[in-house]
Design a protein around this nucleic acid. Sequence first.
DNA 1: ACCTGAACACCGTTCAAGT
DNA 2: ACCTGAACACCGTTCAAGT
Lengths: 232, 232
Amino acid sequence: MTGKQFTSVWLREPRKATTPGRSREEIVRAAVEMLDQEGLSGLSMRKLGAKLSAGATSLYWYVATKDELLELAYDEVWGEMTVPDPDRVGWRDSASALAHGMRQVVLRHPWSADLIGRLPALGPHAMEVADRMRKMFKAAGFTGPAIDFANATLTAYVFGMTIPETAWNATMGAQYDPDEMRAAVARAAAGHPDMLERINMDDYDDPMAMREMSFDFGLVSMLDGLERRLAT
Amino acid sequence: MTGKQFTSVWLREPRKATTPGRSREEIVRAAVEMLDQEGLSGLSMRKLGAKLSAGATSLYWYVATKDELLELAYDEVWGEMTVPDPDRVGWRDSASALAHGMRQVVLRHPWSADLIGRLPALGPHAMEVADRMRKMFKAAGFTGPAIDFANATLTAYVFGMTIPETAWNATMGAQYDPDEMRAAVARAAAGHPDMLERINMDDYDDPMAMREMSFDFGLVSMLDGLERRLAT
DNA sequence: ACCTGAACACCGTTCAAGT
DNA sequence: ACCTGAACACCGTTCAAGT
């Protein structure tokens, strides 16, 4: 009774689609474009309105709030994730491909990383992915709650690994000077000889490659661990 | 050369601490308090100024930007994480306790979940934790880059699991009506019989307990997987 | 049914001016 | 050395008014 009322775009009837004027899809498409180009903080209702050559506040007829618009844009990102058919390649390969795919999608839309901690993923695309992931883990042999646990575990790993990556990309820019970066981190790590040992390794010469290796290492560990759950 | 200049509070000399007037520590403490109470969007420089009974813009003498202040507050959160001594309890227990601790810290400061994807963790507290985690994984037997891979993997898992938890807590409030929630999710999952099967399980009667179980399931899997890396 | 502009209550940040 | 207030360029959102 005392609980906050739960609201989400997905739980309200959308306005009937009519031909004239703008459409929700058009707005969401433009929003995603803007988010990709300018990031989460670069999207404003006013600027988006202008981009669609509409008055500053016209969008409010299609969308109740900016947060709702973000929910819609967020689900578009989920729509880019594909779950390979586990019956054709086996669940491990399927899970592995999915994980790499999810990472790439988030790296392509870094603003989505900020939304993972802010909006529940209840859109149709997110549901579709969740549904297919459940099928995958069922095919692997999981039963009951373990299906969802395995699902949550894999998703958590992928996002947990990728979210901080977007933070680095954001502060450092895509290309930067490896020496400057090394120096910066070395300075931050001063007083921790163990950390410095790490920094003097060649990590920073090709951080992209290093991240891939790190991602693969963790992914294999994760899948090994899940496989072990099946044995017990 | 073309790279964006890398900036962070931690790479600039702090202003010399002097006795009179306000201090950076005082400001950061007040900021954390405000963030805990009102969330990330509830913190404004103006309101924080008022809380310290200072003029709206006085804080800018201690801190260059709001983002810098957030970097400082973020590191305070890292300061609450404790890494048990792996020599006393063994690395698995150490890692497990650390993981649970990290999760609790983030749940206590939900705004920090939003910052993980936005700010690199370069503060002294974050460095301290990273340093101690490296020692833990060294004690476990990892060598070379694998030390950092294992580190990244565990951290990713914990944050990846916890970040969406804060999103749920935020939209649903701490206490809510389980039936309303079940109905909401059921509606979102309409058309995916597999998902519905899940919803009709008793998950939602005690979601806190369910999340704990989920977290433990993934954590054990993760640690099993890491242990397997040691064997090879 | 759809769109507009003005208006409200906010933001972060700069900067000349004060003590 | 520290603090202030006014000012600039923004926000999201509401709402009466237009077509």
